[in-house]
Computed example of a mutant assay.
Amino acid sequence: MAPHHEPPSTLLPAQKFDAPWPRYMHPYACFECRKSFKRLGVTEPVLPCPHCGGPSVGLTRKFKPPKQSDVKQWRKVEALVRHGFLFWDLGEPYPSDLTGVDGFAAKHAEHLREQRYRFSNAFEKIDAAMAKRSQSA
C-alpha cells in the first residue's frame, strides 16, 4: 500500500532539490568491481561503471565508499542498497556490518516505503540494476 504523501518525483532519490544550483558531485557505487566514482549534476539513478561497465547506483553525498579490498563492507553496502537505502541522513549511524542490515531495514521500513513511493521511477531502475547484478553474481 502506497503512503499518502507527495506524488512521485522526477528527481533522483539522492537529490534534494530540483534546481540547477547548487550542483554537487554525487557518488555512484559499482558492486561488480567494488569502486565508486562521482558525477556532477547527473540525473540518472543508474549509470554504467567507467571501470567495468557494470551498473552503478547513484547514492547521496553522505556515502563514503569502503576500500575496494574490503569485501565485507561492500556486501553490507550492497545489502543496504537492495533494501532501498541510498545513504540519507537518518539521525543515527548505519549498521557497522552485514548482520545489522535486516534489523536496520525493519526499523526504517516506513521511511523506505515513502522513499520508494516518492522516487518510484528511479527505484525501478535501481531495482532492475540490482536484479541484473544478482543474475550475474
Score class of each variant (00 low, 15 high):
C30P: 04
V46C: 08
R34C: 12
V71Q: 04
P50K: 10
C52K: 12
P22H: 01
L98H: 11
A106C: 05
S96G: 12
L11D: 10
R39M: 13
H111T: 14
P22W: 04
Y24C: 00
P20Y: 10
N121A: 14
P3N: 02
A128L: 00
E124G: 07
G91M: 07
C49H: 13
S69V: 06
F85M: 03
S120Y: 02
M1P: 00
F87V: 01
L11F: 10
S134H: 11
G84Q: 04
F37M: 02
A128V: 00
F31I: 04
C30F: 05
V46W: 08
P45R: 10
E32M: 03
D102I: 00
F104H: 12
L112N: 09
W74R: 08
A122P: 01
S56K: 04
V81W: 11
L98E: 12
K62N: 14
F87N: 09
K35V: 06
S56V: 01
S134Q: 09
F63Q: 13
K76G: 00
Q15V: 06
E32Q: 11
M130H: 11
R61K: 13
P50C: 08
P66V: 06
F119Q: 03
L98N: 08
Y28A: 06
C52M: 03
L98R: 13
G103P: 05
T10E: 11
C52R: 11
Q115L: 08
Y24N: 00
V42M: 15
T60W: 07
L90N: 01
L59G: 15
V81S: 13
Y28Q: 08
E114G: 04
R113G: 00
T43W: 14
G58W: 10
L40N: 15
A128R: 04
P13D: 07
P93W: 02
A129T: 03
F104W: 10
S120R: 14
N121W: 10
P66F: 11
A14W: 14
F119Y: 11
P93R: 11
P20A: 05
I126G: 01
V71P: 07
P65W: 02
S9K: 07
H4V: 13
P93V: 05
D70V: 08
L59E: 14
P55V: 04
K16F: 09
H111A: 08
M1T: 09
S36E: 14
A106I: 07
V101Y: 11
S36W: 06
V42S: 15
Q115A: 08
R23G: 04
Q15L: 09
G100S: 04
C33V: 02
C49T: 05
T99K: 09
A131H: 10
Y94Q: 05
C52G: 00
I126T: 01
H111G: 02
P95L: 06
F123I: 01
G54N: 02
